[in-house]
Structure formats: C-alpha cells, structure tokens
Design a protein around this nucleic acid. Structure first.
Length: 497
RNA sequence: GGGCCGUUAGCUCAGUUCGGUAGAGCAGUUGACUUUUAAUCAAUUGGUCACCGGUUCAAAUCCGGUACGGCCCA
C-alpha cells in the first residue's frame, strides 16, 4: 500500500549512492558568512577586472533551484532568504571527487558553496566555487521551475513549497511583520503599554460572535477561546493602566471566506480620557503613517481600484450611509414597521418584533457596506447592536461608535466605552432577551465584568483593528488566506491510505 | 446555506463537445557537452484520469452521489 512514486525511489537510490561515497546527508558544520543579497549589493556593479582584485572568499548556503550541466562544469542557482545567486562549479577547480559527488545533487537540496567572485560573459555575478557541499538532502522534488506551484489549494496546504517557489509570498509576510512592528511602535510612541490577556475565557464576551468551546480537565470547567480581549483590557483601564494595547489572535466560530479566517489577528487598544472622536483622528494617523512607510504613498491601488488614503476620511452615520446608497427615505429609518417592510423588500429575513436598530444595521449591511470603497468612518450605531458602547449624548437610541470601512470591508470598530455599571447591566439584560429569543451571538450577562466597572472606570475609548485585513490592503492580497501563513482548510481525507 | 466551475504523471496543462488502447512541456533516468541562465542535442521511465456507484460490448469522457478547492450570491 505504501507505493512510492518512481521519482522518490530514484532519489533514495541516489542518497544511498552518496552515503556509499562517504557523504553525510545532513551535516551541521557549515559556516555561512554571506547572503546572496549582501554579495550582490556589494559587488553586483563591479566588472571582472575589479572582481579579480578581491581576495575575499564568500561562503553561502541555500536551496539549489537550478542546475545547468555541461559535463565537466555546471552553473547552479542558489536561493536563500534574500534572493538567488549563480554559482559556477568546474571539475578542475573543486576536484574530481567533489565534482562526482556534486553530480548526485538534486534541485531542491540545501547546499553550501564557497569561492571567489567572477562576472560571466553575460554579465552575471557568479560565485566561482572552490568548494561545494551537500547540507540537506531533499527527498521530494520541487514543482516545475517555470510555472512553479500555482494551484491555490496546494499553495495553502503546502506553504513551505509555496514559500520556496513563489518569491512574492515571502514578500507578503515580510510586509506583514513590518506592518505589525510599525503599529507597535506607533502605540508605544504614544505611551501605550503592550499587554497579554487570556485567550481562554470562562465566558465568551467582548463581541457579538459565536465562540469555540474547550474544556479544562483539572479545573473541570468549560472554557471558550476568546472572541475579543475587550473586557479584560477594560479591566486594566479600571486598574489604572490608562493606555493599553494587545496584538493577538481572536477566534470566531463562523464562516470562512476571502475576508474571514476562524482565527485572525486584532490590534485592540484602550485609552482613558479619550472619546471615539479622538480615535477617529488616531486611526487616520496610524493607517496613513503605516501606508506611507510601507507603500510610500497615500494613493494606493487595491485589486485594480484606486484608493485615496489622504486625510481627512469621509464620515457618515449609519443612517446617512443608507440614505446615500439606497432609495430609502428618512421616515423609513424612524419607524419599526416601515423599516421591517423595507428590509423584507430587500430580501432580508426580519422578525415582526425585530428591534428597529437591528433592522437598520441589516439594511446598512445590505445596501451600503460593499459600496464604502474609499476610507469611511461610519458612526452612530444603534444601541441594540452595541452592548458595550456609550450612549450618544443627544440620542439614547444610538451610541458613540464608529466602524472604519475601506474597499467595502470593515477594518476597525471603536467606541467610547460604556462605564456606567448600571447601564451595562441593563444592556446585558437586553442581550439576554435577544439570546432567549434565539440570537446565539447575543452577549451573556457578565457579573464579574460589571463588578469591575463598579470600582469605577474612567471615561475611555477603545478600538480594534483587523491586522489581517490591513495587511491585505497593503500587499494587494485578494484573500485573507494570502496573508495568513497557515490558513484553515477542511481536512483532506487521503483515501489512498 | 445556494448557484456556477474545477480535480488527469512530482509540477503546469491538453484530451470530456460527439464513449473506442491516456498525451505534451518541465522535472526524473541514460548518453554528449567547461560561460549557461526556461542551457542545448539524442534516447527514455513515469498514470487508482479525486473517490463511490450506475449506464454500456466498451467510461478520463455519459448519469447519480461524495470529498476537497475556486469564484459569485446570501
């Protein structure tokens, strides 16, 4: 049953042959002193005359990506984390024995090469090898050199191969790392403290979403992977830390799509004595400064659409966004029955007693969300969908909250925090009623959190920014799976086993 | 959840309309070749056509189902 392909069997025969020649297949004594890029940066512009004056030897290592064989000499292409460099392996130079060992190398092997530098007659900087060695034998063959690995499913399931074959993938994750560093620096420069709060919660709170459930044996209790760190970060505000942030994973037991992964990375932060309006300004500053660093411009292109990140960004209330992008009239958004009727015309499923605020948000998502292409802060969310947000001073049916949309995708969610414990208890009670009515996403009553609020939380504003979606924007990636190294896929049953 | 499309050699893909011995390029193997870069030239190996079932003298191809993936919609 364990039929190996002929390719693999041939490789194993080669490995045996190498071992018979006394070659160690996985040695660990190589000293590497240079990278492809460092060598090319320093010497790429020199001509052969300059290069012959250089006594220095260079030792590099990397994956053998191509071999062009000429009998008693060969050109090889070696790839390390920064790029590729050509090597020239001549039998006269490396010696007869080393050369016959080299002839048993395969594309895909990890190799070591050392030597001086020359320019070939086609002008390519080349390591003129005086030594070449095997560092790790590859048993499996790499994909084809020209087309590489293009099958999307194979790329996600075999990310190592994807990273070897597709240089753009590596770029995306270098950019991702830079984006996170820039955000971390931005926050720390503003005196925010980076913290880590629990990933396992006794109760899934801080967002409206379905959780993953797990179980702790010794404590004999159910735990939930967090859907948001919000309630813990706000406890730290109660504790007087005043400015905190956390960059970490959230887990939501929901659908998978080009913009949803079950686990995703969020930067969430809380600032005492600030309002959601302060956070609008801060969000603009943060994202434009990251964009300037990463892309060098605020005029960016994403999936063929030009996006103008120049400040200030558009602001619309939820209701304004609906009126702008539909034929709804203002009176429809003031009356539950009219709103329900309008929603049903749009094809939305609405209960007869559905609260007006929920209907408004459903209409917003249907008619406006996808059309918010240029950066837009949507404000004034209904209280029914904002159980943790402060009521707006003028209108108790709405809250001091915004969501940021770019390219029709939610990138951030922020609000002035509800810090009145009694109001918070009432909001949780409202949510409980929704839950009893069948809304599995509704928030639960969290007495422990309310008791924290009862110690007094300063007026505070907080925000969560979706890091994966931000990285998608800055790397022009069409799918969230392109910016997550190991995105979740359905288990593939191998029926051959 | 719904619709459409895809799954054939290690990789990239033809072949499916209209059923009749499973193909190419690259990779691999053998030979030639000391400045090539998708090296070249000659020869050559390699397949559970995703899986299960049905129709048929005969199925990669037609029909039904399943799995996985992609795109669009909700």
């Amino acid at each position: 049953m364990d039929e190996k392909s002929e390719l693999l069997r041939k490789r194993e025969e080669k490995m045996k042959a190498l071992q018979d020649m006394g070659v160690e297949l996985y040695p660990n004594d190589a000293k590497v002193t240079a990278t492809t890029k460092s060598v090319i940066d320093r010497f790429g512009d020199m001509d052969n005359e300059d290069l012959t004056g250089i006594e220095e030897k260079f030792t590099l290592a990397g994956r053998l990506m191509a071999v062009r064989n000429f009998g008693k000499a060969a050109f090889v292409s070696i790839q390390d984390r920064e790029g590729r460099i050509q090597g020239y392996i001549a039998r006269d130079k490396v010696g007869k024995d080393a050369y016959s060992i080299f002839k048993k190398f395969d594309v895909g092997d990890i190799v070591f090469i050392s030597g001086g530098l020359v320019k070939t007659k086609t002008g390519e900087l080349t390591v003129d090898a005086d030594n070449v060695r095997l560092l790790s034998k590859a048993i499996r063959p790499l994909p084809e050199k020209w087309h590489g690995l293009t099958d999307v499913e194979a790329r996600y399931r075999q990310r190592p191969v994807d990273l070897i074959m597709n240089p753009g993938v590596k770029e995306v994750f270098y950019t991702r790392s830079r984006v996170i560093k820039l955000i971390r620096d931005f926050m720390q420069d503003r005196d925010f403290l980076e913290v880590e709060t629990p990933m396992m919660h006794p109760m899934a709170g801080g967002a409206v979403a379905r959780p993953f459930k797990t179980y702790h044996n010794t404590l004999d209790m159910d735990l939930y992977l967090r859907i948001a760190p919000e309630l813990y970060l706000k406890r730290l505000i109660v504790g007087g830390l005043d400015r905190v942030f956390e960059i970490n994973r959230n887990f939501r037991n929901e659908g998978v799509s080009t913009s949803h992964n079950p686990e995703f990375t969020m930067m969430e932060f809380y600032q005492a004595y600030a309002t959601y309006e302060d956070l609008i300004v801060m969000t603009e500053e943060m994202i434009t400064s990251v964009a300037t660093e990463i892309l060098g411009s605020l005029q960016i292109e994403y999936q063929g659409i030009k996006l103008d990140l120049a400040r200030p960004w558009q602001r619309l209330t939820v209701k304004e966004a609906i009126l702008k992008h539909s034929d709804a009239t203002p009176d429809i958004l003031e009356d539950q029955a009219k709103a329900a009727k309008y929603a049903r015309v749009l094809g939305l499923a609405v209960e007869d007693d559905e609260p007006l605020g929920k209907i408004i948000v459903a209409i917003f998502e249907e008619v406006a969300e996808a059309r918010l292409i240029q950066p837009t802060f949507v404000t004034s969310y209904p209280i029914e969908v904002s159980p943790l947000s402060r009521k707006s001073a003028g209108d108790g049916g709405f809250t001091d909250r915004f969501e940021l949309y770019i390219y029709g995708r939610e990138l951030a969610n922020a609000f002035s925090e509800l810090n009145d414990p009694e109001d918070q208890r009432n909001r949780f009670a409202m949510q409980l009623k929704e839950r009893e009515a069948g809304d599995k996403e509704a928030h639960e009553m969290d007495e422990d959190y309310i008791s924290a609020l009862e110690y007094g939380m300063p007026p505070t504003a907080g925000e969560g920014i979706g890091i994966d979606r931000l990285v998608m924007l800055f790397t022009n990636s069409p799918s969230i799976r392109d910016v997550i190294l190991f995105p979740h896929m359905r288990a593939k049953r191998d029926v051959r086993l």
